[in-house]
Design a protein around this nucleic acid. Structure first.
Lengths: 98, 98
DNA sequence: AGACCACTTGCGCGCTTGCGCAATCTATGA
DNA sequence: TCATAGATTGCGCAAGCGCGCAAGTGGTCT
């Protein structure tokens, strides 16, 4: 438990992918917005203050990293956090940054 | 506690800086190595399998993000984790990646 | 069918990053 | 003082990222 075992290089590659997903202010904004529940791409883009295609790309990064999942209802796609630990990690980072 | 308050854009910028620091496999390797205690730049570079100048740059990124601190003893510089929460955050990311 | 809405994808452009290499700085020795 | 070891900094290049824009896809209406 809680040991810090050495990781293989390919493991670290996957961990780094999560780091990259957390490396952009707009993507962090998305995580904050989704903490209250699922939202559509359009909603997220207005809250983050960017255009829809741009938001779609950011969401693609977050989804590739496994931080969010999507659900389609009619023509609109709703995104949600895939795991509560995602929020834990973000809050930890916020605390570290003070 | 543990509320997810909306952050200002400049706050998210700082949080994202920590994300970027966690976005590289070699830097994650450094965090693993430093989990056991402080190490010199030369030691870290051999463990990460890279050249000393490259490691120095990675350490500069980690230090700018506030994840590590340095201590000079004679001509060698020792780096250590600045906060145990840094390791917590990394372990959380490892768990999320499954 | 056609028009419309929500979203995704592809392209092109700047900017940033990671890297190797050479040069430089700092401290310890002879 | 000179030489040497440890670490940092600057430079140049290839690769990657964030963005806007245009085009394409999937779904819902009349």
């Amino acid at each position: 438990m809680s040991g810090v075992d050495a990781s293989s290089d390919s493991d670290r590659q996957r961990f780094a992918a999560i780091g990259r997903a957390l490396a952009d202010p707009k993507r962090l904004c998305v995580l904050e917005c989704l903490s209250a529940g699922e939202l559509s791409v359009g909603d997220l883009s207005t809250r983050a203050g960017c255009h829809v295609p741009n938001m779609s790309q950011h969401l693609s990064v977050l989804r590739s990293a496994g931080l969010v999942t999507s659900r389609r209802e009619g023509s609109t796609v709703y995104y949600r956090l895939s795991d509560p630990r995602v929020l834990e990690a973000y809050q930890l980072i916020q605390n570290i940054a003070r």
